Computed example of a mutant assay.
Amino acid sequence: MQKPEIICHMVTSLDGRIVAERWPFSGPALVDLYESVAERLGSDGWIVGRRTMEDHLPVGEPQLAPVAGARIDRMMKPGGRSLGICFDRQGRLRPETGEIDGDHLVLVVSEQVSEAHVAQLSAQGVSVVFSGPHGDDISGALSRIAAGFGAKQLLLEGGGQINGAFLGANLIDQTSTLILPVLDGQRGIPVIYDHERETKPVSLELLSTEILDGGIVWLRHRVARN
């Protein structure tokens, strides 16, 4: 199965940090700029990790239970809405509806998440896609999302860990990076890519450069494939 094209769309300081609340440029204006650029990319939805989604949804204890046999995805009809996809490996998120910011909510979980939790999510209109026994089959989940929803392009907008996991799995096709004219410099502040496992550096091909309001530089790159 063919996976959707993945564009990692991020806003960062010049030194690669991504905690916008620390910067003098933070606030609604920066959010509006970030989203307006995202619209120009014309994707079918967006992807974040569980920690990013915790700012928008309630969270609880992991919902794990022994489950025998292969799991079947529960895909709802998005009704023409874009997809809001979150990788929630252990089933911690507690959405009350199948909508997130006007988009259709899709949770990607491991096959260890209990059937009771999956059934509850489905009853609330949330789509559930499985990502292997340990939740690390990102490619397989993306391929089935592409097939089930007709998604051809998705924006990866997560924190360093999920972005790093996608990079480590060679699943990023392009990058879209808004670089603000600010230096953070604080040790320990999250960065765009921060994979806990060993990674292999990849080469990028420059697609475009654009200067936006406030001296913000928008760089677009394609990941070079050998």
Rank of each mutant, 00 (worst) to 15 (best):
P190M: 10
V202C: 12
L212D: 09
Q186E: 12
P181D: 04
L204I: 09
S208F: 03
P190Y: 07
K200R: 14
K200N: 08
I211G: 03
D213N: 14
P201F: 11
L207E: 15
L180W: 05
P201S: 06
G185C: 03
P190W: 03
L212I: 12
I192Q: 06
Q186Y: 01
L206Q: 08
G185A: 02
E210D: 15
T199L: 12
T209M: 13
L207F: 03
V191S: 09
V202G: 06
P201N: 10
R197K: 13
L204W: 05
R187F: 06
H195S: 04
D194K: 09
E196Q: 14
T199C: 08
I179R: 06
P181N: 05
L207S: 09
T199M: 10
V182F: 13
L180I: 14
T209F: 07
I192E: 01
L180F: 11
Y193N: 04
R197S: 12
L183N: 01
E210C: 09
E196K: 12
Q186M: 07
L212H: 10
I179Y: 04
G185M: 03
K200L: 07
I192C: 09
V182K: 04
V202H: 10
L207T: 10
D194I: 00
L183H: 00
I192F: 05
R187A: 14
V202T: 07
D194W: 05
S208A: 15
R187W: 00
R197D: 08
I179W: 01
E196T: 13
K200D: 10
P201Q: 08
G185W: 00
D213Q: 15
I192M: 15
V182G: 02
G185L: 08
P201D: 09
S203E: 11
Y193M: 04
I189W: 00
T199N: 03
K200G: 09
H195Q: 07
E205K: 15
V191D: 01
V191Q: 08
V191T: 15
T209D: 04
D184I: 06
T209C: 13
L180Q: 05
I179D: 01
T209P: 02
L204K: 08
E210P: 07
P181V: 05
G185F: 01
R187K: 03
T199H: 07
E196R: 15
T209L: 15
D194A: 15
D184V: 12
S203L: 11
R197M: 09
L183S: 00
L204T: 08
I211T: 15
V182T: 12
E196W: 11
E205H: 12
I192R: 03
P201K: 10
I211E: 11
E196A: 14
E205N: 05
D194Q: 12
P181T: 03
